[in-house]
Amino acid sequence: MANSATIALPDVRTTTYWRRNQRKLAPVLFLAPGVLMFLVYVIAPIFQSIWISFYDWDGIGAKTWIGIGNYVELFDDDAFYTSLQNNILWLVLYMLAVPAGLFIAIFLNQTVTGIRIYKSLFFFPFVISQVVVGLIFSWFYAPGFGLFYLFLEEVIGTPIAILADERFVTYGIIAAGLWPQIAYCMILYLTGLNNVSPDQIEAGRLDGAKGWRMLWHVILPQLKPATFIAVVVTVIGALRSFDLVSIMTDGGPYGSSRVLSFYMYEQALSEYGFRMGYGAAIAVVLFAIMMVFISGFIWRMVRDERSGG
C-alpha cells in the first residue's frame, strides 16, 4: 500500500479520502441507481397523481384547476359506487383464498410417491398469466357450450350466462381470480407446514390433541408468518384486480363488473375519453383504501424488524 502511494501523488489523495470515508460513501453509491429509478417512476408519480386529481385535464391541452371538483363529482357518480361496492366484494371473497389454500396445503402435505408433481400441478394456475386465466374462465362460462354453463343447466335446470348477468358477473370474475390466488396461498402454507416443529406436534399428540384441535392450537400459531404473507398478497391482489375484469367483461354488462382500478383506466385512457384528472381522483381513492392496509402491514413489519434486530 505505502509503496504504491509514493508513486502517484494525486491518486493518493483520492484514495485516502475514499479509504477514510468509504463506509459512509459506499451505501450512497450502492443505493443511488435503484433509489433514483424508484423515486422517478414510483414515489414521485404518487404525488403527481394526487396533484393532477385537482385539475380538469384531457392529457393534452391545458390543465384547469378545479380544486376538489373531481371528488365532488365522484360523490354523485353511480358508476363509482358500483366499482367501490365491487371492490369490497372482491376484498371479502378473495379472503377465501387463505383458508382454501391452507386446506389444499394440508391435503397435499404427505410423502406418498409422486406428491411433488401433484404439488407443482396444483400450483400451476399461479404461473399462468391472468389474461390466459381470464380467457380460460370465459370459455368455462360461455353460454351454449361452456362446461360451467352446461353444469348449471344440468343441476338447476335453467342455465345462466354468468358473464352477461349483472347479478352474477362479479362473482364469476372473482372465482376466476381465486383460482391462481388459492394456488399462491397453498404454496405459502406448504412451505410453512414443512417448517412446523415436529417436537411440538409430538407434544400436542401426547396431550391428546388431534385433528381440528391440533390444527387450531398447535399448527396455526406456527403458521403465523405464512398467514401474514398470504393475507398481504391476497389483499393486494384483490385491490389490484384489473386484468380479469378487462379480459372477461370489459367492465360490463352495463358497467356492473367494474372495479375502481378498471373504472379509473376507463375514465383516463379508453375510448370514453381522456379524463386524466377524474381518473387520478379515482386512483387517489383506491390508493387511500390501499394505504390503510399498507400502513398496517408496514407497522407490523417495522415492529418485527425492531424486535428481530
Binding site: 414510483v42 404518487i46 397523481s49 386512483a283 387517489v284 390508493f287 390501499m290 392496509f293 408496514i298
Partner: peptide, 22 residues
Amino acid sequence: FFMFVAGNFVPFQILMVPVREL
C-alpha cells in the same frame, strides 16, 4: 427500506397517468 417495501404495494393506477406522461 420501507420506502421500497411500501412502494411495492401501491395500486398501479395511482402511477398510471404520470408514468405515461413521463
